[in-house]
Design a protein around this nucleic acid. Sequence first.
DNA 1: TCTCTCAATTGGTCTGACCAGATTGAGTAA
DNA 2: TTACTCAATCTGGTCAGACCAATTGAGAGA
Lengths: 224, 224
Amino acid sequence: MESLTTENIKKHFIKEIENGSISIGQKLDSERQLSKEFKVSRSTIREAIRELNALGYLDTVNKVGTYVCSKYLETATDESSLKKFIDLAPIIDLMEVRYILESNFVDLAVHRAEESDLQKISNLVKKMKTKNISETDYYKYDLEFHYLIAKSTHNVVIVELMKVIRDRIQSNRELFIESGKQTMEKDIALFESIVENMKLKNVKETKKLYDEHLRTVTATIKGS
Amino acid sequence: MESLTTENIKKHFIKEIENGSISIGQKLDSERQLSKEFKVSRSTIREAIRELNALGYLDTVNKVGTYVCSKYLETATDESSLKKFIDLAPIIDLMEVRYILESNFVDLAVHRAEESDLQKISNLVKKMKTKNISETDYYKYDLEFHYLIAKSTHNVVIVELMKVIRDRIQSNRELFIESGKQTMEKDIALFESIVENMKLKNVKETKKLYDEHLRTVTATIKGS
DNA sequence: TCTCTCAATTGGTCTGACCAGATTGAGTAA
DNA sequence: TTACTCAATCTGGTCAGACCAATTGAGAGA
């Protein structure tokens, strides 16, 4: 048998992961173990794992182990892929997509929201209410609210898209019009209603309220 | 000075490349040389280089050297970065997003479709009609149809998303159920009506027809 | 049964070595 | 001077064995 190269090992794992032989979240054997199994040195294994990390297939945790990436999005995203694309896209086009996505995934969110999701959203809204927050802070919380709703869909594509869209908006804050205290308070009340309706699994009402808020938000791009 | 980690080295090079301190095509020092410069072991340097290769920043040629990747700038803007993300996403999640997008951007498409867009769509439908095409070919044409509709929105984010979604579906064809001659013919008739209604700028009817087709399409994922 | 302790395990890094192909430059032949 | 040859050198790829610090899990002790 010919000896294996880093490239061979890499391809082997990609194949295994893509056809499902290794399932998402599964922990791989340790590097030392793998080097025995493949009869190569630990460095060869490590270099293959490094690449697969960069490619988003694996996620290695220091002193713990290497896992098939369930949250590959986080790793694959922040350096290269999706973010770069979103960051370069015209903000108008992006907001259009955002509106389409958000106004349509809200019902998925209601259906699939777990207790923990609702809890997080509740806590966020509470934070917005109790403190006399600044508009800048409010802005962040607002985006976070939308992101948490996205997370409740438990659809990784939606989550990841919303994450990078959120980041893009945050870093282009100057393009958006300030909300003003009045809108802020009105929105927070809206958030409360939304959470309550989500808890009651009241899809229709949640959707209506969410859409109302969305229209406010997306109408605040300067000059459009 | 604290000692450098693979992560540090990686970030260092990314920064240098992105701000242009290292120019494209330039050859890096040898691994042994770099390990001296950064005062780390060669393995650390190698692992950083491995990642940067996977991320598309560097290109290493066996026994020759490592070069700053000329492909880097190209890939940053085009779809390949996005592609990586889409290709890794669970197909179910992706189809959900696809459905949300498509069923909602169709009205944008009707509004914004230019003469040339309509022409292209027309031609495609004609091709599907006249020839006695195989199911495999039909499959491609179908995806192309959806893609052309997306293009008519003139929203680059939508176009890019649909492009990579289309490619992903095409390469995972086995996951979808064959349509059968009957569905095929029915669909082609549907396509014709859609084009005609687009030409008439009849948003409501187009949307209705398109949605009808979409439901057929997205219901054909095996085991869902 | 529960808590705490500690040794085994894990990934990250280091050193130093060998291989085989690529590069280069000095010396030879024209 | 010019063209060619070929060996010394350099390169990335791989290997073996070592140490570190954080994590983890099983066994000791309550």
